[in-house]
Design a binder for these strands. Structure first.
Length: 424
RNA sequence: GGAGAGGUGGGUGAGAGGCUUAAACCAACAGUUUGCUAAACUGUCGUACGGGUUAAACCGUACCGGGGGUUCGAAUCCCCCCCUCUCCGCCA
């Protein structure tokens, strides 16, 4: 959520930024917001003044009663009851204005930073880095959905039987590969100074609002209605909400947390021909990194996070490309996002395996996450996060790219974790 | 699931219609003293919104889990909801 103050003071910059997302008629909605805010101030001022008068009268009435001057007290009571009516009506106005204002503010996405290119879709993203070469596979190379059957390591049919489509069952070396990847990712993050967190994987409503899944993406989360809890779509939700409603000390910064959790997504309406196999699931595993930074440090932190994610892919010997997302392809909360895409050789496609974003103050404003700066002023912090990494598509790429006559070769660095070299 | 007890500032905790401008203590911060540490003393110390200011100071309003109500006046009385803790039951 943008701050009204920013919209007021940097209106043109906000317009320029939002135009990069392909939004139109931004100025009109900014003006609506400023007008509503003016009305809010005016109404509140009237209400405060009347309230002050009423408070004074109440004290006077108290004194008059004590001294036994009942007649005079009755007169003043009349005036206070008039004030009360006016205050009630002003208060109703104020509540309505605030609701309208918040609705307008929720509707505005974050302002992209200077670096973000304008654009409508994935076609306008910029490839800023590539690594590795695309593997040449044999004629009879198989896509991962055939490989998992051939080696009996991941079973979609069993998942359908006990849960439904999109809930795979990992078996034998498939299960061990999952566990190996999770441990590898957590160990690497720890080496980079991240603290490991094991959060709950269901969260309450307030947490959903804190990170912005609610109200916008209500239908995308599994909802346990009996207890009004939501299954998390990403570890970002619980790990970032740890810091909701907080004024931090400078000494507690920066925060660098990492967590492994399963992630649950309903993916309502997003299934199509190109999302076979592991490409899209209702439940998947992910290791997520979250940072909380002082504003002046967040840009550098984002670069560090990207380089860290890239190092994971390089250690796993996976060819990838790094994309700077254009305005139109970024999530609403983000100010700047880099995606890492791994090449999946048998599908002949790039698969997104990580998304690293700086939300700047957008998320912190909703979370009420602030710190006291050197001047002792309370100021919003910057939040950042990234997948490091999401498992299914990494698994898909490893299976496809590393397939040989004899089986699937496990990347060298993972062998210490799997304790086998081949899936066969 | 059953029964009970509670939710007050960063923490502990008093307050039971107007004497609260929320006591007191602890923590934190600044200063004084001191060979260092410590201690002692003094001072500062909630959040949001609005007004005001170059910036402060300062002024107003709201906030004692949340929402309603009673009253001239509510942390305090009434109603609804949420949460936490304790005991019993069940249970990895």
């Amino acid at each position: 959520m943008l701050q009204v103050q920013v919209i007021r003071e940097q209106k043109q910059a906000v317009i320029n930024g939002l135009q990069k997302r392909g939004l139109k008629e931004i100025e009109a909605s900014l003006d609506t917001i400023i007008n509503l805010d003016n009305k809010r101030k005016e109404t509140q001022r009237k209400q405060d003044d009347l309230q002050a008068e009423s408070n004074t009268l109440a004290r006077e009435i108290g004194n008059l009663m004590k001294s036994g001057n009942k007649e005079e007290a009755e007169k003043l009571k009349k005036r206070t009851s008039e004030i009360k009516e006016t205050v009630a009506s002003l208060n109703a106005d104020l509540t309505q204005i605030e609701v309208d204002l918040q609705k307008e503010l929720y509707a505005l996405p974050n302002v992209p930073t200077e670096k973000v290119p304008a654009g409508k879709s994935a076609d306008d993203n910029i490839t800023v880095h590539t690594f590795g070469s695309i593997p040449e596979l044999a004629e009879n190379a198989l896509p991962h959905w055939d490989l998992i059957k051939k080696y009996d390591i991941i079973d979609f049919d069993l998942g359908i039987k006990i849960s439904g489509a999109g809930f795979p069952v990992y078996k034998g070396k498939g299960a061990k590969l999952q566990r190996a990847l999770i441990n590898f990712f957590l160990d690497e993050a720890e080496k980079q100074g991240y603290r490991e967190i094991q959060p709950p994987i269901v969260v309450n409503e307030a947490s959903g609002y804190g990170t912005g899944q609610l109200p916008d993406k209500e239908g995308q989360m599994y909802h346990a209605t009996a207890d009004n809890l939501y299954l998390i779509p990403t570890a970002e939700v619980p790990i970032t909400n740890l810091y909701r409603d907080l004024v931090m000390n400078e000494a507690e910064l920066p925060v660098k947390n990492v967590g492994y959790t399963p992630c649950f997504r309903r993916e309502a309406g997003s299934w199509g021909a190109h999302v076979r196999g592991l490409n899209r699931l209702h439940q998947f595993d992910k290791v997520e990194i979250v940072q909380i930074r002082k504003p002046e440090e967040s840009e550098k932190a984002l670069d560090e996070m990207c380089l860290y994610v890239q190092s994971l892919l390089e250690k796993l010997e996976l060819p990838y490309r790094k994309l700077l997302l254009c305005g139109g392809d970024m999530g609403v909360n983000s100010a700047i996002t880099y995606d890492m895409e791994v090449y999946s050789a048998a599908q002949k496609r790039w698969l997104e395996v990580s998304s690293v974003s700086n939300f700047e103050t957008f998320q912190a404003n909703r979370l009420k996450l602030r710190y006291k700066n050197k001047e002792g002023k309370t100021q919003l912090l910057h939040t950042l996060n990234g997948s490091a990494l999401a498992l299914p598509r990494i698994v898909a790429a490893i299976l496809e790219n590393n397939q040989t006559e004899k089986g699937i070769r496990v990347p060298k660095i993972l062998q210490a974790y799997t304790r086998f070299e081949m899936i066969d």
